[in-house]
């Protein structure tokens, strides 16, 4: 068990390292921040001074080693825009992003999973077809289109909710709904097919044959088993809590990580982009590890280091 844990941790660290390295080289080889920050027609001396100040004149690998060296000590560089520590800038935005992604996540679970279960249990019924139609619409319509439709209806036509910004308590509603609907649609489909797969298994028929009520068969023999594949997609959704709202935050001018990322990328604010992606990679990897453990907990066949063998 300990060896498994250590191996898992090592792989996680390696993944994060690769992400950092990849992002670092792509960013540093794909354009000059000096031009963006100072504007292209700045005097050459100013540009030269800027590049020296940020170490951009040195070879890329040397910059990378320096970055790693500092990062290991908790220093992720400063924003080229306002000079503040990049990680601090990023972490300040986390609560704002979580304020929409966490409720949206709850919405996905609360709508998507029951809808999927219901559809599977009433396969081919009108309710099933309707659910699946809505679900297809839910994830084929891009989120910015959905966002615009919601704005048109609830802000422009009805005037109930603000169309953008974050100044009123109701401002979060449309971003949350936009995020939640798409995710719920995906989850509903996934849950439905997981349930159908399980309901077709011989142990379901066997459980019915021994006289168990259908409700109990579903609750005790279908749901726990269908939860196993569903965990994958739910885990993935946990992984996107930090960075899954880029489009929605941009459309609704919501001051979260996603919007910071967009502006940092277009400004070539390297340290900030790096810090965001590091955070994103870390959440993804953490979510993955959690999923692995939930798997082991849900499925005895995958349990490692069990108390007895065959």
């Amino acid at each position: 068990m300990l060896r498994y844990l250590a191996g898992r941790l090592l792989r996680a660290i390696l993944t994060i390292f690769l992400v950092i390295a990849f992002v670092f080289f792509v960013l540093h080889l794909s354009g000059d921040p000096a031009m963006m920050i100072l504007s292209a027609d700045a005097p050459p001396e100013a540009i030269k001074a800027f590049r020296e100040a940020w170490g951009l004149d040195r070879p890329v690998w040397e910059q990378f080693l320096a970055y790693l060296f500092h990062a290991l000590q908790g220093d992720f560089g400063n924003s080229m825009r306002d000079g503040r520590p990049a990680m601090q800038l990023v972490l300040e935005r986390v609560p704002s992003t979580l304020a929409i992604t966490v409720p949206a996540f709850a919405l996905k679970l609360l709508i998507g999973i029951p809808a999927g279960i219901y559809a599977a249990l009433h396969r081919n019924s009108l309710a099933d077809r309707l659910t699946m139609m809505i679900s297809v619409a839910g994830f084929t319509v891009p989120s910015f289109v959905l966002a615009l439709v919601l704005v048109l209806v609830f802000s422009v036509q009805l005037g109930w909710l603000p169309s953008a910004g974050s100044d009123k308590p109701t401002s979060a509603i449309l971003p949350i709904v936009t995020l939640g609907v798409a995710g719920a649609a995906i989850l509903a489909r996934f849950t439905r097919s997981a349930m159908l797969e399980v309901l077709g298994q011989p142990y379901i028929r066997a459980a019915s044959a021994k006289g168990l009520q259908w409700r109990k068969v579903v609750v005790e023999h279908a749901l726990p088993n269908a939860a196993i594949p569903t965990t994958t997609i739910v885990g993935f959704m946990v992984g996107t809590l930090i960075a899954g709202a880029v489009v929605v935050e941009s459309v609704f001018a919501w001051p979260g990580i996603g919007r910071l990322l967009v502006s940092a990328v277009s400004n070539r604010d390297l340290a900030v982009v790096q810090a965001i992606l590091l955070l994103v990679a870390t959440t993804m990897v953490t979510a993955n590890i959690i999923v692995d453990f939930v798997y082991g907990w849900l499925d005895p066949r995958l349990r490692r280091g069990g108390t007895r063998g065959r």
Partner: peptide, 16 residues
Amino acid sequence: IAMIFQDPSSSLNPVH
């Protein structure tokens, strides 16, 4: 009336 089936290993729920 009780019934037992062809494939015993998949007639038992793997998670219980």
